[in-house]
Amino acid sequence: MLIEQCAYGNRWRSVTPAAKGLFALGAFVAAFAARQPAMAALVAMLVALTTVAGAGIPVTRFLRIAVPPLGFLVLGCLSLAYSLDLQAENGHLAMIWLPSGWAPIQQLAARSCAALAALLFLATTTPMVDLIALLRRLKMPEVLLELMVLCYRMLFVFSEALRDTRTAQAARLGYATPALTLRSLGSLTANLTLQIWQRAQALNIAALSRNSDGAFRFLEPDYANTRRDVTIAAIAGLLLIGLATGMP
């Protein structure tokens, strides 16, 4: 929901998703093309700064969104920092600290941070609706787009159903003890399974009533200044790549 709020409430909401996607793509390429970890870290900082200062995403909100993926990154780095080694002489397992030195960890951390910043830039400035429209324009297979549309919409319908059912169960002491919690979660799952099936059937009927033949066709939104914004995004993306690769 935090991402959703940012995507709809940022300064660049009305900028064409093509421009934002292009800039994010440039940042991705820069992240992987960076010759030095320091360069990748610089790309990460610049993209994060663009998101916060340019698109107007509050720093605290940006950091809250970034914390969970950064947690996974820390775990990934830890797995590189330690290595288990089976010692041949006594058959014992030994833990080796920094088997390959700091370099791969720095590389991984810096590149991942830059790629994460690029992804968060796109996610926090572009609503899912616009992203789907952009992917449609990029000729992504219809079946994948339909899945995305339905999953996105159903996410909110079912989170509401889940919340309502949980509240109703809690109001009747459904989560008072661990045993009751387990039982309630079981009935919640059963109930939601049935609801999903009923909802799918109802949606199909509603779609048929509007002449659906199976394929989803939707209108694409219009954006002002598309050409200007795409040009700016392309230049910014190229500058990032140039900076990362150390080009003059």
């Binding site: 609503p127 919409r153 909802r199 109802a202 949606l203 509007r210 989803f216 209108l219």
Partner: peptide, 19 residues
């Protein structure tokens, strides 16, 4: 919620005419 399945308002309203 039985009828609306598109992500945005404009998309959903356009579903019938495009069909």
């Amino acid at each position: 919620d039985q009828q609306l399945f598109s992500a945005s308002v404009r998309e959903d309203v356009s579903f019938g005419p495009l069909n």
